[in-house]
Simulated scan of single mutants.
Amino acid sequence: MNILITSAGRRVSLVEAFQKELKTFFPQGKVMTTDFNIELSAACHVSDKSFQLPLVCKDEYFSSLLKVCLENDIKMIVPTIDTELALLARKKEAFLSHGITPIISSENFVNMCRNKREIHTFFEDHNVQIAKEYSKLDYKLPMFIKPMNGSRSIDTYKITKHKQLTEYHFNNDDLMFLKYIDHDEFEEYTCDLYYDKKHTLKCIVPRKRIEVRDGEVNKCVAEKGALVDYIKSRLSFIDGAMGCLTAQFFKHKETDEIYGIEINARFGGGYPLSYFVGANYPKWLIQEYLLDTDVALDYYESWEENLLMLRYDKEVLVHDYKA
Rank of each mutant, 00 (worst) to 15 (best):
11 R>L: 06
23 K>V: 12
38 I>P: 07
48 D>Q: 03
50 S>V: 07
52 Q>E: 12
56 V>W: 02
56 V>N: 01
57 C>Q: 14
62 F>S: 05
62 F>R: 08
68 V>E: 06
71 E>T: 03
74 I>W: 00
79 P>R: 03
79 P>W: 06
83 T>W: 08
94 A>M: 14
115 N>R: 13
120 H>Y: 13
129 Q>C: 12
129 Q>K: 15
132 K>W: 01
133 E>L: 10
135 S>I: 03
138 D>I: 09
154 I>M: 15
160 T>E: 15
160 T>I: 13
161 K>E: 15
168 Y>R: 11
171 N>V: 03
173 D>F: 03
175 L>Q: 00
177 F>W: 06
177 F>V: 02
179 K>A: 03
181 I>K: 02
181 I>E: 05
181 I>P: 01
185 E>L: 10
190 T>V: 14
209 R>I: 12
211 E>R: 14
214 D>L: 11
214 D>S: 15
215 G>W: 11
222 A>Q: 00
222 A>W: 03
230 Y>R: 07
230 Y>T: 03
231 I>M: 04
239 D>C: 12
241 A>E: 00
249 F>T: 05
250 F>M: 15
255 T>G: 05
256 D>R: 04
257 E>T: 10
258 I>F: 01
263 I>Q: 08
263 I>V: 15
266 R>A: 06
268 G>W: 08
272 P>H: 09
275 Y>N: 12
282 P>F: 02
289 Y>N: 10
289 Y>V: 09
291 L>S: 04
298 D>W: 09
308 L>C: 02
309 M>V: 09
310 L>S: 09
315 E>D: 14
